[in-house]
Amino acid sequence: MKVLLVNGSPHKEGCTYTALTEVAKALECEGIGTDFFWIGSKPLSDCIACKTCATKHACVFDDKVNEFLDMAADYDGFIFGTPVHWGGATGAMTSFLDRAFYADFCGGRNNFYLKPAAAIMSARRAGTTATWDQMNKYFGLMQMPIITSRYWNMVHGARPEDVGKDEEGMQVMRILGKNMAWFLKCKEAGEKAGVPLPEQEQIHFTNFIRE
């Protein structure tokens, strides 16, 4: 089993990476393989609602989003990390998730269905809980079980060395990794025992306008 840790910071080895590394160490100690994926520091377009992904089975913008989608099927769980910018996830991370999950859904890839996910937030001081709420909405829409820790998944510090000194935050990261590992092992045990996936229903799209 493997978990992909997605670094949504423009800094490849900054505060967010420091937190993700602590989660990865805990996963590895539990026998779960890990890989890192950095979304990079180049600008990422937001979704333009062209719906090309419905026929192309990929985003019309061929960048880090498609690279991620091509990898996603090989992983059993995901941890998404982002710094807090202006009380929310970074613009790049927001565009990345908007496009990745929309392209997966509309393109019929189904790479994320019932795969556990978690978000972690890194901030100097505030905005972490609002960002956590924002990130978890993606997982709920994609039917991804949300893994939690003993506290909200956040670390604090202006520099990586500061984050390393956030004892409670780093403990929260370790517990998150252990909880993710436990869930993955339970899921694997259920599959081996023959527990079937939930019966699927046809999706009905509605709005609030009625004839």
Rank of each mutant, 00 (worst) to 15 (best):
L4H: 01
N7K: 03
K12N: 02
G14F: 04
G14K: 01
G14L: 04
Y17Q: 07
T18A: 15
A19H: 00
A19C: 04
L20E: 01
T21R: 12
A24Q: 04
A24Y: 08
E28P: 10
C29N: 14
C29K: 15
E30C: 13
E30R: 14
T34W: 05
I39P: 06
I39C: 09
G40Y: 11
K42I: 03
K42M: 10
P43R: 14
S45Q: 14
S45T: 12
D46E: 12
C47M: 07
A49R: 13
K51R: 14
C53S: 05
C53M: 06
A54G: 11
K56W: 06
V60H: 12
F61W: 06
D62Y: 04
K64E: 15
E67T: 12
F68S: 08
F68D: 09
L69M: 11
L69D: 06
D70C: 10
D70A: 14
M71S: 13
A72S: 15
A73W: 07
A73R: 13
Y75Q: 08
G77H: 08
F78S: 06
I79C: 07
G81R: 01
G87H: 05
A89K: 02
T90K: 01
G91H: 09
M93V: 02
R99K: 09
R99F: 10
F101R: 06
F101D: 05
Y102N: 05
Y102G: 02
A103I: 03
D104H: 09
D104I: 09
F105H: 14
L114N: 04
K115C: 02
P116A: 03
P116N: 10
A117K: 00
R124F: 04
A126Y: 11
A126T: 14
T128R: 00
T129P: 01
T129L: 13
T129N: 12
T131F: 02
W132T: 12
W132E: 12
Q134Y: 12
M135W: 03
M135G: 02
M135C: 03
Y138L: 00
G140I: 13
G140P: 00
M142D: 03
M142T: 04
M144Y: 05
P145K: 04
I146K: 00
I147A: 10
R150C: 08
W152R: 05
N153P: 00
H156W: 10
H156R: 11
G157C: 10
G157H: 05
A158V: 04
R159P: 00
E161G: 02
D162I: 03
V163Q: 10
K165E: 11
K165L: 11
D166P: 00
E168Q: 07
E168K: 07
E168G: 00
G169H: 06
M170V: 10
M170N: 07
Q171I: 04
M173Y: 08
I175L: 14
A181Q: 05
F183N: 06
L184Q: 03
E188L: 11
E188K: 14
E191I: 11
K192E: 15
L197H: 12
Q200S: 11
E201C: 02
E201L: 08
I203P: 00
F208P: 00
R210V: 13
E211P: 15
